[in-house]
Amino acid sequence: MLALIAGTGALPNEVVADLAETPVICAMEGFIPDDLSVDIVFPLEHLGSFISDLKDQGVTEICMAGAVQRPTVDPSRIDAATMPLVPVLQQAIMTSDDGALRAVIGIFENAGLSVRAAHEIAPTLLPPLGCLTDAQPSQADLADADRGASVLSAMGSADVGQACAVSKGQALAVEGIFGTAWMLQSLTQRPDAGGGILFKGPKPGQDRRVDLPAIGPETVTGAVAAGLSGIVIEKGGVIVLQKDRVIAECNRLGLFLFVRERAV
């Protein structure tokens, strides 16, 4: 049996829509999914009890999908079943995003639960290789994509972000803590004539079972407002939410969407 630990945003809904059977839907306090009926709500301070409850219900696999921020832990709420996990949770909260996610995955796996990726149980979330739109990238755009992959690799070593904007071989902006939409918004007043690409992909060495980057219709709108010519994503590394709508919006607005091979 599968349990979906759902966060906010569109991803949890798309995962559930792609499944033949509805999973047990769970959510952490403060991060309730937008349009899903939740079976179990748990505070992080009761994580140990939550895991025991899942196993008692016959759950053997979990998938984590959706946005969740680092919560504030109230020591007075920690229950007995969670107390042994406190050192791991403390370490996770204090470390990098990747480190925190690896620690959480380790907690579930040590409890005997398999952790599955959203795109593994809902494979239609990942688009095929090639250009998906009427507009096509130029050779200059493809060169900017190569540059974007290099920028992202450097960013990944510092655990900074999963996206950047590049034009004529120069990095216009890189994604930070405020996300891709904020980065694109920062380019709406750019002083040049426009052009360039949004490049998005996972961090080097990232555990792809959780926090895989995603784009959606709002990404297309943001890229146009930023004066970019197109979006390039890494094959197998970026989820496309509402894919048909994303492609339709790109075609309507003259943007290209290109899925390139994974950078080595």
Rank of each mutant, 00 (worst) to 15 (best):
Ser114Lys: 10
Arg70Thr: 15
Val104Tyr: 02
Ile51Ala: 03
Ile40Asn: 00
His119Ala: 13
Asp56Trp: 04
Ala67His: 13
Gln90Tyr: 09
Arg70Pro: 13
Asp74Trp: 09
Ala65Met: 05
Val59Asp: 02
Asp74Asn: 14
Ala65Asp: 05
Val38Phe: 00
Val59Ile: 15
Ala117Ser: 15
Ile93Pro: 02
Thr72Trp: 06
His46Lys: 12
Ala65Gly: 09
Glu120Asn: 06
Pro43Lys: 09
Asp56Ala: 14
Gly112Asn: 08
Arg102Ile: 06
Ile51Asn: 00
Gly30Ile: 06
Ile62Phe: 04
Arg102Gln: 14
Leu85His: 10
Glu109Ala: 11
Leu47Cys: 08
Ala103Asp: 14
Cys63Arg: 00
Ala81Glu: 15
Val59His: 03
Ile93Tyr: 12
Asp74Pro: 02
Asp79Arg: 10
Ser76Trp: 10
Pro43Cys: 05
Ala92Met: 13
Asp79Val: 09
Ala111Cys: 10
Ser76Arg: 15
Leu89Arg: 00
Cys63Phe: 04
Val59Leu: 06
Glu109Ile: 04
Met83Asn: 12
Asp98Asn: 12
Val68Thr: 03
Met64Asn: 04
Leu54Ala: 05
Gln57Met: 15
Phe50Leu: 04
Val41Ala: 05
Thr95Tyr: 12
Pro43Gln: 05
Gln90Gly: 13
Phe108Val: 04
Ile78Ala: 04
Ala65Cys: 06
Glu61Trp: 05
Ile93Val: 12
Asp53Met: 08
Gln90Asp: 15
Ser52Thr: 10
Ala111Thr: 11
Ser37Trp: 04
Ile107Lys: 00
Leu85Lys: 01
Arg116Glu: 09
Gln69Asn: 15
Gln69Trp: 08
Asp79Lys: 09
Pro43Val: 02
Arg102Val: 09
Cys63Trp: 01
Pro71Arg: 09
Leu101Met: 15
Arg102Cys: 11
Leu44Cys: 04
Glu29Val: 13
Leu54Asp: 01
Ser49Met: 06
Asp56Gln: 14
Val38His: 02
Cys63Thr: 10
Pro87His: 11
Leu85Glu: 01
Gln57Gly: 11
Phe108Glu: 00
Asp53Tyr: 09
Glu109Met: 10
Ile32Met: 10
Gln57His: 08
Ala81Ser: 15
Arg116Asp: 06
Arg116Trp: 07
Leu113Val: 05
Val73Ser: 07
Arg102Trp: 06
Ala65Leu: 04
Asp53Asn: 12
Thr82Gly: 05
Ser49Thr: 10
Cys63Met: 05
Asp35Gly: 08
Pro71Met: 07
Ala103Phe: 11
Pro33Gln: 03
Pro33Tyr: 01
Ile105Asp: 04
Gln90Leu: 08
Pro43Tyr: 02
Ile62Asn: 01
Ala92Leu: 07
Glu120Thr: 11
Val115Ala: 01
Asp53Ile: 07
Ile40Ala: 01
Gly58Glu: 12
Leu113Cys: 09
His46Met: 06
Val104Gly: 00
Gln69Asp: 12
Asp79Met: 13
Ile62Leu: 07
Ala100Arg: 10
Phe108Ser: 02
Val59Gln: 02
Gly48Lys: 01
His119Glu: 13
Ala103Arg: 07
Glu109Lys: 05
Cys63Ala: 14
Ser114Gly: 08
Gly58His: 11
Val38Asp: 02
Val68Arg: 00
Gly30Ala: 03
Ala100Ser: 11
Gly48Ala: 14
